[in-house]
Amino acid sequence: MLAVSNLTSRYGRIEVLHGISLEVRTGEVVTLVGSNGAGKSTLLRAISGVQPVSSGSIMFDEQAIGKWRPHVRVAKGIAQVPEGRQIFTPLTVDENLRLGGITRRDDGVSADLAEMYAMFPALGEFRNKTAGTLSGGQQQMLAIGRALMARPKLLLLDEPSMGLAPVLVEQIFTTIGMLKARGLTILLVEQNANAALAIADRGYVIETGRIVTTGTGKELLSDERVRNAYLGL
């Protein structure tokens, strides 16, 4: 579904991604593990089109999407839950979700909205409150709900468990498991490598802008180097 090859990207003169190649197949959950500043978020931003790419290609459903503008990529099926949630704090929960479906041309938006409230009951309770008043966990649910409203084929999740209490982290991973069970294709970036690799079909380890190793979730979980570097074992 998604094939990134030899992607490089830079902030000003400093190159941060040095030829990244990875692949996500339909129905897979793929996780990208790496430390702070390794380029995980940059890669997701490049896939969504909000980070300039200097060379390499991004293919989505057999089409080169490198020149598409961000909103076109969403319309074609790539939605992202950005790092730090980035919900529209002055707008209400309901408005946030409705904006999530702004690229939709079908008439299923209301039905999906009802489904989001069923999936995240806390959001239904606060539907007319401004999003900024929600707790961190609820904001993360809202960010996920907003992305799902676009009916994506591929969901990019950037650090969904960051800064949340353990019980909420568990809830987020339960949600991801549920989305996986429904057949959604997911590319997950996480610092919580343990939980991410456990849920993922495959994983990539990224270090300072390069993919250093790849394998199934299980293989990486038992890989000595990965265990030392990212699992703290």
Binding site: P82, Q86, L99, G100, I102
Partner: peptide, 10 residues
């Protein structure tokens, strides 16, 4: 409110 998030939302 948030230009990048707006782009990512479509």
């Amino acid at each position: 409110a948030n230009r990048t998030a707006a782009q990512l939302t479509g």
